[in-house]
Design a protein around this nucleic acid. Sequence first.
DNA 1: GATTGCAAGAATGTCAGACAATCTTGTTGA
DNA 2: TCAACAAGATTGTCTGACATTCTTGCAATC
Lengths: 223, 223
Amino acid sequence: MPPELNLRISPRTVQQETVGKLRLAIFSGMFQPGSRLVESQLCAQLGISRPSLREALRSLEAERLIEIVPNRGPSIPALTWEEATAIYEVRELMEVEAAGRCALRISAEQLAELEKSLSAFEDAASSNDSAAQVMTAADFYSIILANCGNPVLEEVHRGLVARISFFRGRSMSLEGRAQSSLSEMREIFEAIAAGDEKAARKASKRHVLKAKAAAKISMDSAS
Amino acid sequence: MPPELNLRISPRTVQQETVGKLRLAIFSGMFQPGSRLVESQLCAQLGISRPSLREALRSLEAERLIEIVPNRGPSIPALTWEEATAIYEVRELMEVEAAGRCALRISAEQLAELEKSLSAFEDAASSNDSAAQVMTAADFYSIILANCGNPVLEEVHRGLVARISFFRGRSMSLEGRAQSSLSEMREIFEAIAAGDEKAARKASKRHVLKAKAAAKISMDSAS
DNA sequence: GATTGCAAGAATGTCAGACAATCTTGTTGA
DNA sequence: TCAACAAGATTGTCTGACATTCTTGCAATC
């Protein structure tokens, strides 16, 4: 038996389950930015004890999905535009790099997966379900990131995208944004399929910049 | 009074204190990679209760400074070379970008600080105190990152560097590495001082690549 | 002698309850 | 209207407990 093969099965613990549920709740916009999370309420809703909940909250805090201020407790961060910009910039750095690498090394099977996820986004884009749009778009990226050959790049990217999920949901429901997104993503796909690193980087950069611009618009129109 | 000014003073909580202490302990190499952290022992050493400790451990887990396997508890990750490589690559991405931006926007005062930290590293480099070398080198980077204009870049970079602290400590004690590091860092400094973005990026890239190579050597010679 | 199986001990996952310190809020008084 | 205050809510932290799950050492077997 190969000694490095990690066969340990990991039972899902209450804390992992809790982190997962809360993360999803945050992504789905169940909590308003700035709103506070009251421990006793969450415990009751989730059916868990306070120590377990607090452990989960610490994990989310370290991921920057929530903030915890001493003696005030946890809350959903209300990102300023400057903060969001900073995240978009680093996301751009990661995503451009990943797209370039992906173009050079993706397998045929994974490319097929990528194409499939693009179709899924296409379907979502013609509907008006912005939640589905965000989710299918996320699938598309995550296939790219998973095939860039660097798990850390993927991990950091996922963390960043998670932090701006609020913006992404809002900007995706902007008039015409989904269609525009689609064509940008198709460009990325074409470049990757062609194995053209430079084009993939360029298309990817364009996409992130446009996404950022859309986020700005949706933010301005909101507040 | 400007309303956005956040004047809230944050009392240090037991958990923050604990995270800080454990982080330092990990950086200083107090725990061997792969070794397990036993909750009851840590509680006794730190003089805190188990719930508080566990919250701190969850934070460190999310930072990837420790691993927690269900029913086995926390342990120090033993990075493979592939994992370390992935981290170095992303670090390169961040650091190169930061150095370039820093060259374009650093203030005179901060530049003076940077020079001071370079001198500090120079002193450390001529000594044989590799811990001091690692620490002063870290100061140097963190000034660059703090002046790149993007706090997220800084934050991600800090997280990555933390995860390879073990390698950095080992490789710095390699024969001649500190001196070589010094000249690379001086190049970076010169480029930033000259406001030359391209040169800063180039010098920075060279530095990270050499650091990575040194880490590889020290790792091979170890195992 | 090496391997398997088992049992005792150690460590973790989770909960309940408690209490002091701090924050929030509604009310009272100026 | 605004400031002071008191009651209630919330958080930070601890103690203690117990079921589950590893780990380890020893005995039994092949």
